[in-house]
């Protein structure tokens, strides 16, 4: 419908909407995060839900302990290799549509503990991530910002067409393989359908440029 006509109608007290808008509006305003804290960042996540920052303003104060009832996973903290299979499993158990916020340096890349033998270098090696929040730990305001960004993205999603979200596309996977514990490392060490190793070019001065070849599935999802 034409924007002008819509405005005119709403001035007359007639509210018009499209199914897509209604659908996205509903999802945007009641994102239920999974009650799932991993490390230090989780404390900031809890602080975000408390009185001062009050995540309830965004319709997301209901932290669900069960993945079946949640549609947003905030990976808040260091994902160790021992924990990674459970994280993937939890993600698989969440119903579509589902979103992932990777909160903090650790969840993005291993962060300060990147040299650790038991530290997964970023949860995006196994599951697709929608929003990354840098910081160690990110402040509650940063989490709120990520939250609003996610809401904006959901609002923009098209229900039809080639770049429709994953849960409306029967060809896209909604579950991802769970890594197994190996003798030295997790097997496999990453999911090549989700993650490709970035190509790094390092110059003598120490500045580096990272070229990130995005995995196909990820790119189409994020629009």
């Amino acid at each position: 419908m034409d924007e002008k006509l819509k405005n005119e109608l709403s001035r007359q007290g007639i509210f018009t909407t499209s199914l897509q808008e209604l659908y996205n509006w509903g999802r945007t305003s009641s994102l239920w995060p999974l009650n799932f804290g991993l490390a230090c960042c989780a404390i900031e996540m809890i602080a975000t839900t408390m009185a001062r920052y009050d995540m309830a303003r965004f319709g997301a104060e209901v932290f669900r302990p069960s993945p079946r009832q949640a549609d947003l996973m905030i990976v808040a903290g260091t994902v160790t290799k021992k924990m990674a299979p459970q994280v993937v499993r939890l993600y698989n158990q969440m119903p579509e549509p589902k979103y992932v916020i990777s909160m903090g340096a650790c969840a993005i890349s291993g962060g300060p503990f990147k040299q650790g033998y038991n530290v997964l270098k970023g949860i995006d090696r196994y599951i697709p991530v929608d929003i990354y929040i840098p910081g160690c730990p990110p402040r509650p305001e940063a989490l709120l910002d990520a939250f609003m960004e996610l809401q904006k993205r959901i609002d923009r999603q098209q229900l039809t067409g080639a770049d429709r979200p994953r849960h409306l596309n029967a060809d896209e996977p909604s579950e991802f393989p769970v890594p197994r514990f190996g003798a030295h490392d997790l097997e496999p060490a990453n999911n090549p359908n989700v993650w490709k190793a970035p190509l790094v070019q390092i110059s003598q001065t120490g500045t580096s440029q990272t070229v990130l070849p995005q995995a196909g599935t990820d790119e189409s999802r994020n629009n």
């Binding site: 260091t78 160790t80 021992k82 924990m83 503990f113 040299q115 650790g116 033998y117 038991n118």
Partner: peptide, 14 residues
């Protein structure tokens, strides 16, 4: 234990 074993002691050695 071990779900948050972040190898702090090993990293500290370097």
């Amino acid at each position: 234990f071990g779900y948050l074993h972040r190898n702090h002691e090993k990293i500290a050695e370097s």
